[in-house]
């Protein structure tokens, strides 16, 4: 069901105008935008004059309450809250950066963060390249005959008994 009663200018029933006035009052600026023009045309109906007069009277009474002017103290408190929250959020980020800097200063005193970061990245890259270039068979150390002897031994030999 649509949220708005979208009726054409020429087809609004009087009952709908009554609903509008009873809900939104006598100021047409407060009426639903899509129905305002059609409703205003129906105001020419003499039967609506009494309803409009009653609505306008309540509107005048409600208008006796003027807007509140916010106090300077309230404005100051709201901005102080902003400053406090902004500072807290800023300190949280600065704290993490400072803790990382402390660790770096122990390993590489006095260096800006980018220097140890680059060194670490370079080491990692070299390690990856070295691993890619080494041939698989050289992983086995030819001098370690005891390890290979266990593997070459016949199944009857208990590995736990080998010297």
């Amino acid at each position: 069901m649509s949220e708005e009663k979208n009726k054409s200018v020429s087809k609004m029933p009087l009952e709908r105008l009554t609903e509008i006035i009873e809900a939104y009052g006598g100021h047409s600026r407060n009426w639903p935008e899509s129905e305002r023009e059609a409703a205003e045309r129906l105001l020419e109906d003499p039967g609506q004059a009494r309803l409009m007069a009653s609505a306008a009277e309540l509107d005048r009474e409600l208008d006796s309450m003027r807007p509140i002017v916010p106090s300077g103290e309230l404005q100051a408190r709201i901005l102080a809250d902003f400053d406090r929250i902004a500072l807290r959020l800023g300190l949280r980020m600065a704290g993490a950066r400072s803790r990382l800097k402390n660790v770096v200063d122990v390993v590489w005193p006095g260096a800006p963060l980018w220097q140890p970061a680059c060194a670490l990245a370079l080491s990692l890259a070299l390690g990856i390249v070295a691993g890619a270039l080494v041939r698989p068979e050289s992983w086995r150390d030819p001098a370690d005959s005891s390890a290979t002897s266990l593997l070459d031994a016949p199944p009857s030999v208990d590995p736990g008994q080998a010297g």
Partner: peptide, 24 residues
């Protein structure tokens, strides 16, 4: 919904008219 809003408004304005009726 908009229909529910209009119901709240109409009932509210009726109650206010009854309370403020003596001002008329």
């Amino acid at each position: 919904s908009v229909e529910a809003l209009e119901s709240l408004l109409a009932r509210g304005r009726r109650a206010l008219r009854q309370r403020l009726g003596h001002w008329n």
